[in-house]
Design a protein around this nucleic acid. Structure first.
Lengths: 218, 218
DNA sequence: TCGTGTGAAGAACTTCACAGCT
DNA sequence: AGCTGTGAAGTTCTTCACACGA
């Protein structure tokens, strides 16, 4: 047994490799190489090989990678070789948009329920087959439907409060779209998605002239 | 004149500090400290001080930071002390959701136009005061309205093609929501927002038991 | 005494360069 | 000959630890 520390960025890139392999497969390709992936993704080929090497040997020297096999391997690494029961918590514009995004099911993320505290939304369908439940029933329904992942799209002001409720349901992970740092026990994973931060990082980049250098008068 | 390399993560964190300061200000607070910010954001206080130190001395030793002053400074660093003309390119569920997100205007991001190639959407209002234009008029309208930032929410299949059109309009940056690596000339900034990658990184975290250690049989 | 600002040390991550299969 | 897999070198980023000012 060998314990290896996996860099966090490696995981994000694995997800990108998977996405890229899906594209190549859709184009009818059957094999590829670290060089080819590197060109599509604008990263170094050695980075790709190193990332994969943390988990095993998936390629053939002198040949490259079999797309199907590599996809399968990455799927297993990322935990995508099972279906995940997902709930959307907060049915605003963003929550609805995500519920209607068809790309989730393809990767094994099954939206089983949505929640909102607005009674006029409760009972409606947010998207084909996805019913909106009352936020008050969060615990009950999540347990019933064995929800493992919550997509949190409530207003920032109630983010922590709803997070605490979610923790109680026995959820395993939260995809946090609220512009807040939510606090959870250690054993519950959280990933933050905040596009306003990306936007601000974009304007920084623009004003600093696309250089990664900042000039200061002394 | 001193040239300093600013770590990319520092910029993202600055945007987080700003967000956090907005909250504290809304609560009526006037001053804070690196320790206090660190607790809210779950980062190390020394990280915050180091991040700020790249750009100047904003605090008082023994005292802390004046919230208003620090916000002003970060605003300037991130380029948020001006208004930005933004266009939403691709009026699907996500594009509409973003157009209706009120948090953008507050930070100086003004949505001036939306674009779609679906003629039935053209001429409608995606949100109060935001008109949908024909994708064919992208270049003309973007120049007219002096659009500086595009929020790219078109289908992945046309992402690169639309990006090329945007580049021609003289745009300065793109917030890329498509699950694709788009290619632009060096002087055009791109920030990627792909929640499916965050979601996969979340499942990795869950299956690997929240440890950052991966166990391999030898 | 308290909290900032910052060199210096340390940790994490990336890239190189080349041995080893096919 | 071509492309992977990987120690080792190199780079970037984070944390420490303490001098300094309020």
């Amino acid at each position: 047994m060998k314990n290896i520390k996996i860099p966090k960025p490696t995981i994000k890139r694995l997800a990108m490799y998977y996405r890229c392999l899906e594209n190549k497969k859709a184009k009818g390709m059957q094999k590829t190489s670290s060089k080819e992936l590197a060109e599509s993704l604008e990263i170094k080929a050695s980075q790709i090989r190193k990332d994969l090497s943390y988990f095993g040997e998936f390629g053939k020297r002198g040949v490259g990678y079999d797309i199907d096999k590599l996809m399968d391997s990455i799927k297993t690494i990322l935990g995508l070789n099972k279906k995940w029961n997902v709930a959307i918590v907060g049915v605003g514009n963003l929550g609805s948009a995500i519920a209607n995004y068809t790309g989730l099911e393809k990767n094994g993320f099954i939206i089983k329920a949505a929640f909102d505290k607005n009674k006029s939304k409760v009972g409606t369908q947010i998207s084909a087959g996805i019913l909106v439940y009352d936020m008050d029933d969060l615990k009950k329904i999540c347990k019933e439907k064995n929800i493992e992942i919550a997509i949190l799209t409530v207003p920032a002001s109630v983010a922590q409060q709803v997070t605490d409720m979610l923790v109680e349901t026995g959820i395993k992970g939260i995809l946090n779209f609220t512009p807040t740092t939510i606090k959870t026990p250690e054993n519950i994973s959280v990933e933050d998605v905040d596009f306003t931060i990306s936007l601000k990082s974009l304007t920084y980049d623009i004003v600093s002239n696309n250089k990664d250098i900042y000039e200061l008068a002394e």
